[in-house]
Design a protein around this nucleic acid. Structure first.
Lengths: 204, 204
DNA sequence: TGTACATCAGTGAACGCGCGTTCACTGATGTAC
DNA sequence: TGTACATCAGTGAACGCGCGTTCACTGATGTAC
């Protein structure tokens, strides 16, 4: 607690915080334990008291990201089916847009491969579960067509994940430039793309 | 041409090839000019005759990737609207699954930021254009609902891109495990997720 | 309450590594006359 | 056809850098009696 104490007292938490700041500003590849220690004012080996290695620290950031995402999704799903489905889509995309580098770390694939960090896998699963629960609820009450749950969930997730990635990478306009895009896309999925006058078979 | 010549004669091409191999096997972060030169049997500075810097080489790989993707998309779009739309989705996803690390490089965002390599931006745009043209054709002939073209294209792209990313990162089963997932998802978008008996308003 | 001791959380120095890039250079190739 | 010369495409050495991680250590803290 005392400022100049030999024991830092809060190093673990402060390292996480500093890493998150660097992540946000410069991306995960800019996170180095040596630089982190320097910025905090501590020797580099000190960090190894708290993190097994660099990747474990990254994993913790990602875990925290999934927990935050889960909370934000939960907040918008206590509404009727259509609102819940659109709301969860919007919340998901805005999470990604608010914190693009964190989102990339969470879903980057290369940096934190599946299976290497069980707690990370669990956290991702828990966030995904909110989406699945919401879809299932809408389907049970007859709002959605009676298709396999896994198919509907995979579709919804693909859509919001794709939109998130494309907007944060600048391939599609973000919410600043096109505030209604995310909602339009979600609605389109719900209502279908095919013209109602022509929804049976191909013209050969 | 002679094998032991001082001038290599084909260094540029061989470097690209070797870089692509490393990319496929280990991802873009494993590509280093020094290692590449070593593997080819040439001094590292020699590569600077052919590439301005490391990032330019990566950009060339990504450009080639977009050109290949474009060709593959073009091959499946000369069919009736519904087949073309589903076909382009499947082709897109299978491209990503065939070459995940190349796909990640193309859409990674961090490594090759938009705007830094005009030829790369053009190549990406050209691939995207195939998708847009296909959607527009389907819409013009009345197969799709009369919604804004940009909305429909963004939706289609988000869906296939999201599915690609999620499968290559192991969050959703790939085509091996679930061969019909991509097709099911694409169909779902076309036909809509809402139950036809309940497609008007929310139950409050 | 005091003290011996175990444990915890730091330190500085070092290992070993590989990288991107620049420099001055040299051998090979192509071209003009 | 021969030759002088410009240009091209390589070379080896070096610069400067930062990284992850381990080691033997020391100062601070907590605990049992």
């Amino acid at each position: 607690m005392s400022k100049a104490s030999y024991h830092h007292g809060d190093l673990s938490q402060q390292a996480r915080q500093q890493a998150l700041t660097v992540l946000r500003e410069q991306g995960d590849s800019a996170i180095s334990l040596r630089a982190l220690a320097r910025q905090i004012g501590v020797s580099a080996p000190a960090l190894y008291r708290h993190f097994a290695d660099r990747e474990s620290l990254l994993a913790e950031l990602a875990i925290h990201g999934f927990q935050t995402l889960r909370q934000r999704l939960l907040q918008v799903t206590q509404t009727p089916p259509r609102q819940a489905l659109i709301g969860i889509g919007l919340a998901y995309v805005s999470f990604a847009q608010d914190d693009p580098n964190l989102y990339r770390l969470m879903f980057g694939g290369r940096v934190l491969p599946r299976g290497a960090h069980p707690r990370l896998d669990d956290a991702g699963q828990a966030a995904f579960q909110v989406l699945e629960d919401t879809v299932e609820r809408a389907r049970r009450c007859g709002y959605l067509r009676p298709l396999p749950l896994s198919l509907m969930t995979a579709t919804a997730w693909s859509l919001v994940h794709g939109l998130s990635q494309l907007t944060i990478d600048g391939h599609l306009p973000g919410t600043d430039a096109e505030p209604r895009l995310a909602e339009g896309i979600t609605s389109l999925l719900l209502e279908g793309a095919i013209s109602p006058t022509n929804n049976n078979e191909d013209t050969p």
